[in-house]
Design a protein around this nucleic acid. Sequence first.
RNA 1: UGGGGUGUAGCCAAGCGGUAAGGCACCGGAUUUUGAUUCCGGCAUACCCAGGUUCGAAUCCUGGCACCCCAGCCA
Length: 552
Amino acid sequence: MKSTNFIRQIVEEDIASNKFGGRVVTRFPPEPNGYLHIGHAKSICLNFGIAEDYRGVCNFRFDDTNPSKENLDYVNSIIDDVRWLGYANNDEILHASDYFDQLYQFAIELINSSKAYVDSLTPDEIREYRGTLTEPGKNSPYRNRSIEENLDLFTRMKNGEFPDNSHVLRAKIDMSAGNINLRDPVLYRIKRESHPITADRWCIYPLYDFAHSLSDAIEGVTHSLCTMEFEDHRPLYDWCVENVSAPYRPEQTEFSRLSLEYTVLSKRLLTQLVDDSLVDGWDDPRMPTISGLRNRGYTPASILDFCERIGITKNFNAVEMGVLENCIREDLDFSAPRIMGVLDPLPVTIENYPADETEWLPAQNHPKRPELGTRKVPFSRRIYIDRNDFMEDPPRKYFRLSPGSEVRLRYAYLMTCTDVIKDRDGNVQELRCRLDPQSRGGIAPDGRKVRGTIHWVCESHAISAKVNLYDRLFTLPNPGAAKGSDFSELINPDSLQVKDAVIEPEIEAALPGSRFQFERCGYFVLASPASGGQNAVFHRTVTLRDSWGRRN
RNA sequence: UGGGGUGUAGCCAAGCGGUAAGGCACCGGAUUUUGAUUCCGGCAUACCCAGGUUCGAAUCCUGGCACCCCAGCCA
């Protein structure tokens, strides 16, 4: 059982009081007009999690009422993402469009009871008549059409006799309501447009408030959980359910949507990133989408854990990226086998090691899980180390390699730098070193302390790899709120760095999607395997914590 | 000047009249062949502000203040 929150408390109280006959039915109702993101994951975990824990069901239902924005690619990506997270694998997939006939009948009921009318104002006129936040609206001149005329017009709207925007069906509520949603909201509009599922069967489509509330009612949803911007739609939600012969009366409860620092979580802005080619598609590993996180190497468990940690409240919140990163680190620290990879190779020649010799040294796959076994790592006279593990003029307390200093090559030998080779411009090109032949495996023969341990890869057995280093997409904690800035200027120019790296041969046979810790660097996922020892592609999921790098 | 909502640490978040959980971050210190992990310790005399009720208030009442959402034939 997960930790509690105010919505779970409500559910528990409702079960205790037998309010819905003890039933628990939630729903996850995405609109297929974009990919799912981490904010949707919060909602997925809430809705499916509650159904799971209280022996209820969660309906997976597409809110597909606007064919101009929706398509099957989005539908398919959404199904994939929900299932990848581990939900709805055996569930029927529902659609608001499955209920179009019933919704139409509900609309007829409203007309028959004089609670809805066909309005023939233009869109601009409707806006003018609506009033403002502080001034009441005024009634449309078409508000008092007869039931017969309304029925006739609505039927003809349905039959496609009128062009788009010429008429709408509106609820007759109160044009002076303080809550603007109650000022005769539009229920149906004409869209002579093909729908991904119902194709050309309909020329009119219901709007959100009408379709959503009544779809919930049709399905017998008990707890309709949505985000807080729908809070002042709740009176309209209730109005719809109360004023037709709906078979059920669900209850809507709102919670805060997720904000994550240094990214955006609005479909509008995510769509803009994709459309403006500021990222490489919806599933770019820098995107906060479920598919982006998947490509980045995140696990479903880490995302579920994140959703659990951030909680559910009505507070405004902006969660630090560190929380998400911590979740995947924790997961991968346990599960990811360790290997060595050098992201920025600096050649080293070990002068006292024979040129024609290669030895295979045993290494642990996981320092705390011996059951994950060991492997052999090749070692010879020429190796690579990472450029940032060498400093010619190191600061105090630098434990890595510098001229005359000794470090431990992980699982190999203690090694001392004897000479630095530079090019004409003074760039370090190569290191000459000597090792202590008595220190095989990295053990000091005399027990002397060697603080620094660095990773390395044997030149002759190295597998080349492109490694994509990802960092936060934006330079600002809240880019979505930045007014007047060109969106593209807010992008972190270093959000993607591509490295020509070398990896130990262990990864030669690894399958795409395999996750590793490159020791001392971070966690990486294999995006594309090597062929013939060349050109593997890795994505960095997250760095390791780095208390040295943070201080310097 | 309309309607709705939210204020507990740097960021999340428990708390539901009996004297401020937990996580992340941060700061020590121990262990370490990953400057990782792990472990131990520290981190709100204080809950947006001001009054009031009460033996007792983050919790109840009153009045302020700040911030967010709403004027799509989007969801």
